[in-house]
Design a protein around this nucleic acid. Structure first.
Length: 588
RNA sequence: GGGGCCGUAGCUCAAUUGGUUAGAGUACCAGACUGUCGAUCUGGGGGUUGCGGGUUCGAGUCCCGUCGGCCUCGCCA
């Protein structure tokens, strides 16, 4: 037996036991006489001491130990002498008085600082990910992830959900994100697609009568990356039959409460609050609002209309709105700061940024002269402006105004300590999403959620008369301004599904080609059903206060979707391509 | 595809207005040291300032290009 105990478990109660430990040299302290080694494994650190009095040869060998050597030691658990107890270590009351040492493997000097808490460049860490993963802080994040997944599995199992695996080699559905394609040797010229999600399969499982399904499953999307986005990521996927939105919400709230309780020891107060999509857009300008702090958006079109400021009045005349918010306490921003903000939102499409500061003599700014005193007072009251505040406004079509103001609100809130409370989690459901959204470029209606989302029963009539105002039975769970998961009740009748495909401009032929297997099966006894999918990476990262999901993925990709550790993706042998009947296009 | 930031020792960073031989901490190597635990002390090695070009008497610093990394918008049904 190489080890009898782990490096995290020995205590005073083990005194005088003869033990064997194995692990990596976390640090070494050579006193000429005594040599101290902190031995590390997944479970913790234990100090090993080598004395020349015990065995001179052993002591000499111990002096050659260096960082990250893999060693096995044998020795007796000893109480540390008075005054040398280390209270910051769980094993700090004891040490191993070594009487044997075997160097299992030497190690090159680590390329990254193994002791660093953080602040190692991400690129360095990812290139040396194996060493990085050896660091206890990094290991703990993955272990935390394991615990979350285990809680989910236990929870759904206890509620009679069945874990069913669905194919990775699936059919391409070009309607959504870009697919990763996989050529099929046996069928020249054809390709599988890696699933963007198991959406269609889980619906088919409902038709098949599985009733309650869940899966923790990898999904693939060939889109540009972000800190919150990887080309392959993990979803908790859930689908249920004979239920409505309230059933799903209830089940998920139970799950969230359990996760909070068992991982962080926090009581999540249920039910989780809800807001409509409209309310989210009105107050926060986005569909995933961060409700941990204020500075809510406010429509002041009615006031702006009565000013003599052409930018405002003409925006309203052309169907736009004037929205803004009170950047509490940001009255000390300089002209340059505000110009920078304006530059930022110009990239989103804003034509300008109007502002007023509330100073010693009330509102002041270059545009103050367009406001009568009464109007200025009305504005100040409406926006609860006080001395030291900065009022920011965007005049534009609602979508652009909302996007810009939402950006400004979050940017300013993040720029100063104390605005966003730390260490708290604020959740909200967002419901009553629109069914579809007008795509200006393609001149068509696109699904807000996906093409299988059922319309709100009260709004079915609007599909033909006023699609833009039809609500869906979709719902998102949002935490601290990030969408954790989203789902919907699906259409289980073919006629309704075809009606929506028709609205989306998906012809019967195309629908049959892409989703024929779903449509056909909907005619063979599809139960009412619905579900939800959660971004596991995101959830786990946020629960640990990490803002990059790479922190909770063992081997993540970089921003160019490449694996810095293995070098994937890479070119392949011409022979492989020939077998797949693939010829590369000439490109320079 | 658009916009922005960054690239200096293994790692984290510094280097005045463009000005002498590019520094510090840490890591590494050697020596000293029997109670350290971020050990300490003494000494040492370590650089194509990502790469290429340009401006200049002189470039880590300025300009152009390129490569790499990161952020962001588009995109992500």
């Amino acid at each position: 037996m190489i080890r009898t105990h782990t490096c995290g478990e020995l205590r005073k109660s083990n005194l005088d036991q003869e033990v064997r430990l194995a692990g990596w040299v976390n640090s070494w302290r050579d006193h000429g006489g005594l040599v101290f080694i902190d031995l590390r494994d997944r479970y913790g650190l234990t100090q090993v001491v080598f004395s020349p009095r015990t065995d001179a040869k052993l002591h000499d060998l111990a002096r050659t130990l260096r960082s990250e050597y893999v060693v096995a030691v044998r020795g007796k658990v000893a109480a540390r002498p008075e005054g040398t107890v280390n209270p910051s270590m769980p094993t700090g009351e004891i040490e191993i008085a070594a009487d044997d040492l075997e160097i299992q493997n030497k190690a090159e000097t680590p390329a990254i600082d193994m002791a660093a808490e953080d602040s190692i460049a991400t690129a360095q860490r990812m290139e040396w990910r194996v060493l990085d993963l050896r660091r206890p802080v990094v290991q703990q994040r993955l272990i935390f992830r394991h615990k979350v997944a285990r809680i989910m599995r236990r929870y759904f199992d206890s509620l009679d959900f069945v874990d069913v695996e669905t194919p990775f080699l699936a059919k391409s559905t070009p309607e959504g994100a870009r697919d990763f394609l996989v050529p099929c040797r046996l069928n020249p010229g054809t390709f599988f697609a890696l699933p963007q999600s198991p959406q269609l399969f889980k619906q088919l499982l409902m038709v098949a009568g599985f009733d309650r399904y869940y899966q923790i499953v990898r999904c693939f999307r060939d889109e540009d990356l972000r800190a919150q986005r990887q080309p392959e990521f993990t979803q908790l996927d859930v689908e249920m039959s004979f239920i409505g939105m309230e059933d799903i919400i209830g089940i998920i709230e139970g799950m969230m409460a359990l996760i909070f309780k068992e991982t962080l020891g926090l009581e999540l107060s249920l039910p989780i609050q809800r807001m409509t999509y409209r309310e989210a857009m009105d107050k926060y300008g986005c569909d995933a609002p961060d409700i941990r702090y204020g500075m809510n958006l406010c429509d002041v079109s009615d006031i702006a209309k009565r000013t003599t400021f052409r930018v405002f009045t003409s925006a309203i005349e052309s169907g736009g709105v004037i929205k803004g918010f009170n950047a509490k306490g940001f009255g000390d921003l300089s002209r340059k700061d505000i110009d920078n903000l304006q530059t930022d939102i110009a990239g989103i499409g804003a034509k300008g940024l109007a502002w007023l500061k509330y100073g010693d003599e009330g509102l002041a700014s270059p545009i103050r002269k367009f406001f009568s005193d009464d109007l200025a007072a009305e504005l100040a009251t409406r926006m609860n402006a006080q001395k030291g505040d900065l009022l920011l406004f965007v005049a534009d079509e609602p979508k652009i105004a909302n996007t810009c103001l939402s950006f400004l609100r979050t940017t300013l809130a993040r720029s100063r300590e104390g605005i966003i409370p730390k260490g708290i989690f604020k959740l909200t459901w967002v419901v009553d999403f629109p069914l579809v959204e007008w795509n200006k470029d393609e001149k068509r209606w696109d699904s807000v959620h996906h093409p299988f989302t059922a319309p709100h029963p009260d709004d079915v009539g609007l599909i033909e008369t006023d699609p833009g105002n039809a609500r869906s039975l979709g719902y998102d769970l949002v935490m601290n301004g990030v969408e954790l998961g989203g789902g919907s009740i699906r259409m289980h009748r073919r006629e309704m599904q075809e009606k929506v495909f028709n609205l989306l401009g998906i012809s019967p032929e195309r629908a049959r080609d892409r989703f024929g297997f779903l449509l056909k099966n909907l005619e063979y006894g599809a139960p009412p059903h619905g579900g939800i999918a959660f971004g596991l990476d995101r959830m786990v990262a946020m629960l640990q206060g990490a803002d990059d999901i790479r922190e909770v993925i063992a081997f993540p990709k970089n921003q160019k979707a490449a694996c810095p550790l293995t070098g994937a993706p890479s070119v392949v042998e011409p022979k492989q391509l020939r077998e797949l009947h693939i010829k590369l296009a000439d490109e320079t």
